[in-house]
């Protein structure tokens, strides 16, 4: 049921990451399993995230909605093993493709990140070296993560740029970060994140700073990657509608608490928490939803 549909994509035959190994096979463990995760600020001896649970299987998408301070980013960072200083997981567990991450050594974490779980964040430019062409930076990721020789890594980098639907990938590969738009940079970062064919990709506010039409391009690209490769996605946003585009299941977080969780459709049609209702009413009163005719909103 979670097997990706390999629908042909318009005219683009150059395809990058080879399809992931049989996603959704019955015995495979979930790509990401988070159970009653609790995160504390040790400096203040205070629990900040009070129990988050979800299961993510290959080819599926979980969304986390919340404002700054809701704990959504800390939850992602815990899943990536990159909690900030003096923050620690103080309860519950995280399993990545069957491996409990508690007590993983730095070395094992480094091996896991990129190859099994990966992420993209809000400000793509800050993750790139401004003085090195993006193709060379991408090739370095490929060389380290896939163990390719320099030449092969360069060729693979161009293939990856093609796979994230960058036009003129060879040209883009030779360009410096400042020569590319925010949307193009985010594509480069996505290319780097999926270079080693991870099972899980976390997109934490990855489209927030982009124009709406560019945001849609990136969201379309993520959906496309999910279908082509069986990638499992965690989409984190302050905007419930962004999450509604892509996700099978939604968690609404507020002040470290999951105030609502369920299939996207259920949460949107029968929200139980006042905060979820506020998020919905904002769209219905002030957004496009106000004008959408019932026929169009029915699906």
């Amino acid at each position: 049921m979670t097997a990706p549909s390999h629908r042909s994509t318009t005219g683009n035959t150059a395809l990058a990451p080879a399809p992931a190994p049989a996603p959704g096979s019955a015995t495979a463990p979930p790509a990401l399993l988070v159970r009653d995760l609790r995160i504390s600020d040790l400096a203040q001896d205070r629990e900040i995230v009070h129990g988050v649970s979800f299961t993510l299987t290959p080819g599926r998408t979980v969304g986390i909605v919340g404002e700054s301070g809701s704990g959504k980013t800390l939850t992602c960072r815990a899943a990536l093993g990159i909690l900030p200083d003096h923050f620690a997981v103080t309860g519950g567990s995280v399993e990545i493709a069957g491996t409990d991450v508690a007590g993983l050594t730095t070395r094992r974490w480094t091996a896991l990140r990129g190859s099994t779980i990966s992420a993209v964040f809000q400000d793509p430019a800050s993750y790139l070296n401004p003085s090195i062409p993006v193709g060379a930076q991408l090739a370095e990721v490929v060389r380290v993560k896939l163990g390719l020789r320099r030449r092969a890594a360069r060729a693979q980098a161009v293939e990856l740029l093609r796979a994230v639907r960058l036009r003129d990938a060879e040209v883009v590969a030779r360009q410096y970060p400042h020569e590319l738009s925010g949307g193009m940079l985010q594509r480069v970062l996505i290319a780097a994140a999926v270079a080693a064919e991870p099972r899980v990709l976390i997109a934490d506010e990855a489209t927030t700073a982009l124009d709406v039409t560019v945001q849609a391009e990136i969201l379309d690209l993520l959906a496309d990657l999910r279908e082509r490769t069986g990638l499992a996605l965690v989409v984190v946003s302050h905007d419930l509608a962004v999450v509604a585009q892509l996700c099978d299941e939604v968690l609404v977080m507020r002040q470290g608490e999951v105030v609502e969780q369920g299939p996207t459709r259920t949460v949107l049609h029968a929200p139980r928490h006042a905060y979820t209702r506020l998020l919905i009413s904002e769209h219905e009163s002030y957004g496009l939803e106000k004008f959408l005719t019932p026929k169009e909103t029915a699906r």
Binding site: L219, A241, Q245, L268, E289, L292, E296, A298, R299
Partner: peptide, 10 residues
């Protein structure tokens, strides 16, 4: 058609 809405993309 790019604007995210609660009812999915238009």
């Amino acid at each position: 058609s790019s604007a995210p809405t609660l009812h999915g993309a238009r």
